[in-house]
Design a protein around this nucleic acid. Structure first.
Lengths: 143, 143
DNA sequence: CTTGCTCCTCTAGTCACTAGAGAATGTAGG
DNA sequence: CCTACATTCTCTAGTGACTAGAGGAGCAAG
């Protein structure tokens, strides 16, 4: 039985800011926690994991709605294998697409940085490529 | 002396939507253009180039403030391009980290989907993978 | 001269936060 | 036990980078 953890501690541990945690509660991404006698939110280890997961997923470019689905997938692994499979498959497709897009972006950025001879803006490859769309190989969308 | 181009044409040519062009003018990213007798914005070739530059930079994940810096650099070709190079380099680092993390997620999703197809209701480790700091290489902020 | 397109300004909405005000609660020192 | 200070509470409003819609005016073709 763990004693409840205050929002500040959870914030520090998860890397999610305090107001953001309250915001997540508000939009239903995080379960409503019990309160202390004084009316303060009291979290447990599971909430902490959930928050770290959320933060990480956000950093990877997932939208809140996608994270909700992903969390549901975690919450009911025994329910319907088919359904879980479908959700996982969908996300797999999205993740693969995201990786492909980011790799294209990576190559383009590498091309820019490598081509830059560190001289003057006049002959800077970075500026040049940005200005001329024809020189660019990147046409996807980034997360 | 070129005859002014209407906002719709510039939009089509640059791939930036009409309201977005007006928005860019509002925030000072695009110079205020002259108007026709009827009060319509009239652009020239330079504006078009600038817009293409902006769109391209946005697609590559640069923020408006960064684009402002890049545009200022472009306007002074004599200067060193160190700053432009730095901005691009920073992005490259962030993008690489993101790809690594997404690949970890991809493997985990693949593992889940495979487990399902074999009839096993495997416990989902998506959260474990994404929530555990130790397993993750990505600690930067999203582009 | 009317039809229909483009353009104008303006306000408000989106997403995912972030900042600040003003009040209450919790805690460590004296 | 009292004070000082940190933390938390709720609430409203602001941010970035757009996007959508209302209501009206300009313009080119038939």
């Amino acid at each position: 039985m763990s004693i409840g953890v205050a929002i500040g501690k959870v914030s520090q541990a998860s890397g999610v800011k305090v107001p953001t945690i309250r915001y997540y509660e508000q939009i239903g991404l995080l379960p409503v926690p019990p309160r202390t006698d004084g009316g303060r939110r009291s979290y447990d280890r599971k909430d902490m994991e959930r928050l770290t997961f959320i933060r990480h997923s956000r950093e990877l470019g997932f939208e809140i709605d996608e994270i909700k689905t992903l969390l549901k997938l975690q919450d009911q692994p025994e329910q319907s294998c088919e359904r879980a499979d479908g959700i996982a498959r969908e996300h797999l497709v999205a993740v693969k697409a995201k990786i492909a897009s980011l790799q294209a972006l990576q190559h383009e950025l590498e091309r820019m940085v490598e081509g830059c001879s560190h001289g003057r803006v006049e002959s800077c490859r970075v500026i040049e490529i940005l200005a001329d769309h024809g020189q660019c190989q990147y046409h996807g969308e980034a997360a």
